[in-house]
């Protein structure tokens, strides 16, 4: 059942690939603004890179949430889906599809941003072991699913609300703070040559916790919204 729902999501997404590319463009553009605003000096950029890239990833996820339910809600198919299967299943399928379509591209494009933000400044070109880009990708790989999970709860809650776009940001940004803290500090720890496994472990723990609670909360909220 979950697979059927998932397939449906991915099929629909194929027709809307530009809409899916926009958050990725946004991610790259926001990050590339900072050298203009702060300084193009490599050491400065390297120091702020983890925070900037993580905040940009968070905002891009937030932006992409707009598409989470919109068309399905507008044409009434969401209600049909909820009736046919369970709201938790529908929400779960949406979350997985959403992460594959918007979270994963962010992870994959992040090495480019690492280059733009001089993340590997001072690292010899032959020492792959010290590559901070890998750490950045790992932290995003563990962090973005949690962002999607929490975002799904926010979207399900505001689905039937009179105001939608800004409201969901206000609701979920405080909840994103722990992920931001540990995500950015994973990369910072790597830059300062400290161990970062602890931070990655906590990101993983947060992901597991979100995987346990968020689909049910999102399902419950979805049921409230479409009933």
């Amino acid at each position: 059942m979950l697979l059927t729902l998932l397939k449906r999501e991915l099929m629909i997404a194929r027709r809307n690939w530009i809409g899916l590319a926009i958050p990725v463009f946004f991610f790259v553009m926001v990050v590339s603004l900072f050298p203009f605003a702060v300084s193009p000096d490599a050491p400065v950029l390297q120091k702020i890179a983890p925070g900037i890239i993580w905040v940009a990833a968070l905002l891009a996820t937030l932006l992409s949430l707009e598409q989470f339910y919109r068309t399905d809600y507008q044409d009434g198919s969401l209600e049909q889906l909820v009736i046919m299967s369970s709201p938790t299943l529908v929400a779960s399928a949406k979350i997985i599809a959403h992460w594959i379509l918007t979270g994963l591209p962010l992870v994959l494009i992040s090495p480019l941003l690492g280059v733009l933000m001089q993340l590997n400044y001072g690292v010899g070109y032959d020492s792959v072991a010290e590559d901070h880009t890998v750490v950045l990708m790992l932290s995003l790989l563990l962090g973005t699913p949690t962002l999607c999970l929490i975002g799904a709860v926010g979207m399900s809650l505001t689905l039937a609300a009179n105001r939608n776009g800004m409201l969901v940001s206000v609701l979920i940004l405080p909840l994103y703070v722990p992920i931001l803290i540990f995500g950015a500090s994973t990369v910072t720890a790597s830059l300062e040559n400290f161990g970062y496994n602890g931070q990655l472990a906590i990101l993983g723990a947060l992901l597991l916790l979100a995987m346990v609670f968020a689909p049910f909360a999102a399902g419950r909220a979805l049921k409230i919204s479409v009933s």
Binding site: I150, A160, V177, P178, L206, F213, A217, I224
Partner: peptide, 23 residues
């Protein structure tokens, strides 16, 4: 809807507190 948000929030309050403390 607000109740679901409050419950999600109350799970998050300790997480936020400890992560902020760690940070």
């Amino acid at each position: 809807a607000a109740s679901v948000l409050a419950l999600v929030g109350v799970i998050n309050v300790p997480i936020i507190y400890f992560s902020v403390k760690w940070w």
